[in-house]
Amino acid sequence: MRAGVLRTGALSVRHVFSVRVGPVGFRIGSDWRAPIAALERVYAAYPAPHGGIADFSVRLFAARPWRRFVRPAVMIGGDYVLPEAAPLPLAQGLLAAEMGMNLQMALGQRHYLLLHAAVVEREGQAMILTGASGAGKSTLAALLSLRGWRLMADEFALIDPRTGLVHAFPRAVSLKNAGVATIAAEVPERRLGPLLAHTPKGTIRHLIPDTTAVAKMDCPARPAAILFPSFGYARATRAVLPSEVFVRLTQASTNYVALGERGFDTLTRMVTTLPAFAIDYPDTNTAIDQVEAAWAAL
């Protein structure tokens, strides 16, 4: 149990939701009911943290006490905080909770090497999709999960330094802008969270992972390939050299430096053993085609 849980748990919050996503337990407290209600719906199929004890706490609180009622603005707190973080409108409370969970992982996770990446799995083999924001990895991972792949992660790939296995962390998939309509056209309404307009990242809507993703979230997988998708270019697939993969993954990791030599060993083992491809794609159907072709050639 983390000391931070005790510290934050001592603070009073009006509404609380606890959930386990993969190996990580979260406790989200909120001054308002609405963000908790949204979380309860999105994570309805997820279990509670092991032993009821969360690894990380997130707190959504009013920027000023009176702002709980008048144009409420949500501040994100927790075990780890960014002091300069700007508040979000209450209508984006679900986003605030998701950002809070990301923040705790990015700043506090020490058991796993974290890569900002989506992960999908087939037959026990995992494909890691990483790249800059807007590269399309969330949309691609969501689409692959609708084409027979298991969704393991959207935001963070959790690599175990001891085994090299990737552990599932199937949070709700954060679809953005054009990706929202692409996925909404393929899934029933009940698989989608509320439409969050005018957020700092544009329009956001969460895809609720399917039952397989949740049922198998305790099953790790062996990484088999690393993909760097880039949306908005003519179709092209090229192999990426280990040194370039190494640099890109150190940049994609939120805790590489904090892990010290464990991070170095984990990452160098990955880049020297896994094939890596950069996939430029003009549209999502082409991307799926390229991913399947690259996978078949492994």
Binding site: L241, P242, S243, F246, E261, F264, D265, T268, T272
Partner: peptide
Amino acid sequence: LSIVHLDSFSAVY
């Protein structure tokens, strides 16, 4: 030092 030869580059911890 931990030195891993990647390709034309080497990673050194």
